[in-house]
Amino acid sequence: MTLTLDLAKRKERSPFIVQTVFLGVGLACLLLAPLFFYPVFLMKLLCFALFACAFNLLLGYTGLLSFGHAAFFGGAAYFTAHAVKEWGVPPELGILVGVFGAALLGAVIGFFAIRRQGIYFAMITLALAQMFYFFCLQSGFTRGEDGIQSVPRGHLLGVIDLLQPTNMYYFVLTVFVIGIAIIWRIINSPFGMVLKSIRENETRAVSLGYSVRNYKLAAFVMSAALTGLAGGLKALVFQFATLTDVSWQMSGEVILMTLLGGIGTLIGPIFGAGLVVTLQNYLATSEFPVTIITGVVFMVCVLLFRRGIVGEFYNSRLGRKLGFEHRHKH
């Protein structure tokens, strides 16, 4: 029964412990971060990190490059802002409105996009997202160029005042952790395994009887919904929803963040988002043009770290020793 032994050996303990320690340290940093940084900066970072992770569920784990995720991010921001401001719903419900709106939008865009592959898939998502952009530009409820301004943050569960920056920060952190936990669960589930197999060899997955389209569509809707979670949260953090978040540049930015951090790793996009947001914040006060600098950083990173920053770390000698070794095709 050598095989049975081998199967048992697969679950080695030490990498698990190392990863738990890393997770604990990361969480402790996030809990203590408001002591050292501006809460708004941190909250922005968390929103984009969640956005990038949700995007990566599609790119890294299903192998689909969407160029239209701004529609879900910015769309959810509008939905949440509208629900909270016009309907007067509590913030937690407002975010759920954003999530459901984004999921619905994801179902429509995904339905058309998954019929195509590769660059055509990307083009269709871009085209449909642009249509949504123009809808937002024209429609009444989005207030056109002005966007929805002075969105109230409200009281969480009717008691906790979210206008208080610390309260808001821990609320955002909680939603972030829940979002990441959901993504982690999806990736490490029977369904996630099928997604990976589709990424690895779509034809073989079809020949094994998987209705690949349905799986892709499900992944697309999940990714859109989680992106909506990030978008709705952002609307509450900044208290407005504008056209910036539905523009194609936003779709590009999330691709940049994900590639920088490393696709196909859970925490890679978090680092990528952190880097981009930090850079933008830093450069905003300097005279350098932000887009050129981020472009250069992106090029340097792609040349130096083909797997993304976290991907390279996982594949380094240290990463392997710590049990992070991980494979992904490029």
Binding site: I186, S189, G192, A218
Partner: peptide, 16 residues
Amino acid sequence: QRPNRLATQFWKPLSA
């Protein structure tokens, strides 16, 4: 996975 109806569960752990 598919013939054994263990393909769509996104809420279950891999250990399933």
